[in-house]
Design a protein around this nucleic acid. Structure first.
Lengths: 131, 131
DNA sequence: TCTTGACCTTCCAGTGACTGGAAGGACTAT
DNA sequence: ATAGTCCTTCCAGTCACTGGAAGGTCAAGA
């Protein structure tokens, strides 16, 4: 199967799939004409990668997950540990963004937003407003 | 004032400050020996940049904010618009991460995480579990 | 058969916002 | 004089792609 078709089935652009090959994530067979040849199994792995990436796993984490996926003798504890770490990271990011949201929404509601040049947002950013 | 001192006062590493100069965000005077010379006003701007960046504004947005900050005749509406756009982005990111958290925490709680090789996380990632 | 257009190939460069490191000059303290 | 810390520039690397150029391959239609 050509890269375009594989990409469609896996939900990934060909560019990305070639990149994954470059970094050794998934190296397909080649057809006689030099085109990459993806098997159904490859497409499965690509979809696996697509899902993992969209869940926020780094490419390196995906590499681990993929090798665990292919390893019949693996222990699910390893996989769980990776997922738990990621979950904690996501939680931390959510909290950071929430406090960021508080500050921004405070700024926005206190700015009259008309033609007057004085602006509480810039005042706050510049540190005028009592840090 | 040397770059190290300016960096300490503004909460930014010298490398970053030099980078900001490279991209034309803040170009300081030079001392006779060739060292960069930061005024108190420069430090103020650097702190402004540090705050804005940590609030999630892109460098380009910071550039806009900084020029509005220096523009006595600006309208606060412009500033408010930038902040509102950013607020909406932050909100969207929070929502994305929350749904990501749901999936991950579902995965984690359903994985027994022991020596057994079968693992619901990998099953889910591979698409076995009914997509 | 020719041609068009879509697909494929490789390679190189750019993104954003830094960060690391090398090589060398300047300054301070002892 | 010397050691150590700061400063300079320049180049390269990060992460995960993405864009584009130049050229090869293939399938369909006139």
């Amino acid at each position: 199967m050509n890269i375009g078709t594989a990409g469609e089935r896996a939900g990934l652009p060909p560019k990305t799939i070639r990149y994954y090959e470059d970094i050794g994530l998934l190296v397909p067979e080649r057809q006689e004409n030099g085109y990459r040849d993806y098997s159904d199994d490859d497409v499965h792995r690509l979809r696996f990668l697509q899902r993992s990436r969209s869940l926020g796993f780094s490419v390196d984490e995906c590499r681990q997950l993929l090798s665990l996926y292919g390893d019949k003798g693996r222990e699910s504890a390893e996989v769980k540990a990776i997922a738990e770490t990621k979950l904690a990271e996501v939680q931390r990011k959510i909290e950071e963004l929430q406090s960021l949201r508080e500050v921004l929404s405070h700024l926005v509601t206190h700015c009259h937003g008309d033609g007057r040049p004085d602006c509480p947002i810039l005042d706050e950013l510049s540190g005028k407003a009592g840090d």
